[in-house]
Amino acid sequence: MSRISIRKLEQSYGAVTVLERINLDVASGEFCTIVGASGCGKSTFLRLLLSEERPTRGEIHLDGAPISEEPCADRGVVFQRYSVFPHLTVMENLILPLELRAAPLSGRLYGRPRREARERAGHLLSRVGLDHARDAYPKTLSGGMQQRLAIAQALIPKPKVLLLDEPFGALDPGTRLRMHEILLGLWEEEKMTVFMVTHDLKEGFKLGTRLLVFDKLRWDPDAPQAYGATITYDLPLEDHRSPPPALVAEAEAEAPRQTSRPCNPRPCNRGLADVAR
C-alpha cells in the first residue's frame, strides 16, 4: 500500500509563496506525471514529498500517517543529474542500499552476504539492461545508462513512492523511448506510486495514469511573488498507453511554450482545459 494524501499544502520562502492550496489524493500504485512552467514549483513539490524540506503549512500523509521528517527509504528519488555515486561501480551502487541496511556500522558486506546481495541486485541489473557494465564506474556510462542505474538503485530498497524530477530531461528521444519502456515495466512489476516531473507533455500523457498541471490561479501584478502555484488541472488518463490523439496534438503545441515561459501570470493551459472538458 502506498496511498498519498495532501491537505492544504503551502510552501513559502520569506515573502515568496511558491506553492499554495494544494489538496491531492493519490491512490496506491498510481503514476502521476507533473507538468508546469519553469520555476512554478514542481521540484519544490517533490522536495516536500521527499521530506527534504518541511512545508510551511499543510500535511502530507502516506498510508494515513504523516510522512517522516527527513528523507527515508520509503520514498525513493531519481534526479536529473548526480543520482548515482561516482566512486562506486554499477554493482556497488546497486548493492549499497542492501549493505547500508544490513551493516549499520561498517555499511559494507563481505563474503556470502555480499554474494547474496549481488544476486538480489542482479535481477534489477538485467531489467535495466546493464548486465555487461556491472563493474564499470559511472564516468564510463552514457547519460541513459546512468539514469537506468539511478532508477534501479532507487528501487532496491523497495520504496512505496518513487519520485522522479525530469529524469530523462537530458536524454535524446530514442534513449527516452527505451527509458519509458523500462520505467513502465518496473512500475508494473513493483507496483509503487510514482510522481514524475517532466517538461515533455507528450511524455506526461504517455506514462501517467494521471496528469497534474501546476500553475498560478491567482495573480497580483504588483506583487508577482505573493501567490503560489497550485494544481490547476488534474486529468485522469484512463488508458495511459494510448492517449487520445487530440491530447497529444495539444500537448505538442503547448510543450515549447511550457518550457520557455516563466511562471505564467494568468491561468495557463487553456488549450488543455478545453480538451479536458
Binding site: C72, G76, F79, L96, P97, E99, L100, P104, G107, P157
Partner: peptide
C-alpha cells in the same frame, strides 16, 4: 558534494555515520 547525493543516500536508508563512511 552535490546535495542530490546526500538526499539520495538518505532515501537509500543511510545514517549520518554511513553517509560519512560510504559517500
Amino acid at each position: 558534494l552535490p546535495r542530490e547525493q546526500l538526499v539520495k543516500a538518505q532515501t537509500l536508508g543511510a545514517s549520518s555515520w554511513q553517509i560519512v563512511t560510504r559517500v
